[in-house]
Design a protein around this nucleic acid. Structure first.
Lengths: 286, 286
DNA sequence: CCCTCATTTCCGATGATTGGAAAACTCACT
DNA sequence: AGTGAGTTTTCCAATCATCGGAAATGAGGG
């Protein structure tokens, strides 16, 4: 008599995602048994689920019987407004900043209690930088995180602290009070500085990108060597570039012929908002 | 007594994907009932599945109760070797071609019986072009499709024809014989020309990108005005750029410190292959 | 306030899902 | 070719998560 479903009241979807998540940043290829081991699912169940995922092209099987993440994921992701949508629209501005500052330049949005990095342009000679495209870092530790948090209620900051901010250096914010001060300051001045929070030699700088309804959608930032006075020219460049992205986002929402149009009748919602949004757009980014 | 599961022997995963697929290229935002209608699932089932998808951040709920595709999809897609992996690696070469040719430049891989476009760079003054990033066009109708097919058995070509090639113009290949001739020619000369197959005024040109094991992984192409002789300088540029991408791909596979490294012990498989792969790499693309 | 339409909760019937056991297959090494 | 350790696939009976109709609840417009 087989022992059945003892301690597993989990949804199908959660299990499928456990399997997909087995492919982390350092692991592009896995065999069936490796997937089973990493996901903690029984072999048989893994076997069936992997089969279904291959059927749907979420996974692909290679000639040597190992698996990799499939194209179907990309096809879906390409339609994600907050990720590909934003990334494509922001690209020219990220490049502009990168050309001027010639250091790591990155674009990130909020995902859970982390910043999810959508874009990262680097120079080989730039200072160290822990992030990768598609990677995550706690909202509490990153300059982009702080501008994202500057738009959110205090309770959310508390949750971020609660969730645990990895202590990269002895300067990484760890308490609610520390984080609150940094975030409030970011809101007041309209940008954030993260001096040695992730690496002693690195200073993060970031400015907010606003959605059409005036809320903070994303952050645009650079990583420069730490120490010395803050270069306000970089701050101004970031703010201007971020405003340019905001404007392009708005154009993409309201103009169905925009090269990166985000279609679907969202007009009312995006325009009849409490906050006027026009104030955020004053630079042509095309 | 409720009528139960009559004609629905479908897997959970297939239903979830039906829901995600309801968000097509022209539809970034949908309400619950719109999702139910588009996916053809009963309201109640849709409600539960959408709830689970939101829970897992595959969908996101907006303040006006509509839904959009979620960041989780992006995070997974960012680790897809054949999509993001290739796209990021190929980017500089695509840009190089675009700068020289100053027409639509695109990068595509095989997905089912279609080309899936990973990248597309355009000029506002360039000729018409039907493709979008993340979009699909039958392998049989596209220049990139023909170079992808040039590496595949005849039986697969037959399946492509079987699957139905949309008749964009009266030149769009429709029969197995037509397609076979085009694809064989592409294999012989190492590039493909699609004269008016998708639009009367457009000529597609493409060259193959090879994986480390010598098989065709992707195609790099341009869309130029149709008519007149084929510009062999463009053909050579495409072939050279495509070879550069091939080389970078190989570097990403074997060097874990490559900026776009594709990690995971694939050495044996990729190197101990029947075909020698060195012949494909003769240009430094960095 | 009322009415309409959209969303959510409820719940009994049921079949898709589960996972142990065993068979089948791979591949490295003789 | 033969052996054997490891991996992958098939099989199948028990069962619990899923299904969807019905009804309650909520939202928004007039």
């Amino acid at each position: 008599m087989p022992k059945q479903r003892q301690g597993t009241p989990v949804s199908m979807l959660a299990r499928q995602l456990t399997i997909l998540d087995a492919f982390d940043a350092g692991t592009a290829f896995l065999t069936l048994s490796e997937i089973a081991e990493r996901s903690g699912l029984p072999m048989t169940t893994t076997h069936r689920l992997v089969g279904e995922l291959v059927e749907e092209r979420m996974l692909e099987r290679l000639p040597d019987r190992s698996y990799q993440l499939g194209l179907r994921l990309w096809e879906l992701a390409a339609r994600t407004p907050r990720a590909m949508g934003l990334r494509e629209i922001a690209y020219p501005m990220v490049q502009l900043v990168q050309n001027q500052v010639r250091q790591h330049t990155q674009l990130g949005v909020e995902g859970g209690y982390d910043v999810v990095y959508l874009e990262r342009m680097s120079r080989s000679d730039a200072v160290v930088n822990a992030t990768i495209v598609g990677g995550r870092i706690s909202l509490g530790a990153s300059a982009i995180g702080h501008v994202l948090l500057s738009d959110r209620p205090k309770e959310f900051l508390a949750e971020v602290v609660e969730s645990g901010i990895r202590r990269y250096t002895d300067k990484t914010p760890q308490t609610f009070a520390e984080l609150l001060e940094l975030v409030e300051r970011a809101r007041e001045v309209g940008y954030s500085i993260a001096e040695g929070f992730i690496h002693p030699a690195a200073r993060g700088m970031a400015a907010p990108i606003y959605g059409a309804d005036g809320q903070v959608l994303a952050g645009l930032g650079v990583v420069v060597p730490s120490g010395g006075p803050v270069d306000m020219r970089i701050v101004e460049l970031l703010r201007r570039a971020a405003r340019g992205v905001s404007q392009q986002m708005r154009a993409a929402y309201i103009d169905p012929n925009h090269p990166n149009a985000l279609p679907g009748a969202k007009f009312r919602v995006l325009i009849n908002s409490s906050k006027s949004s026009m104030e955020y757009f004053d630079e042509d980014g095309s």
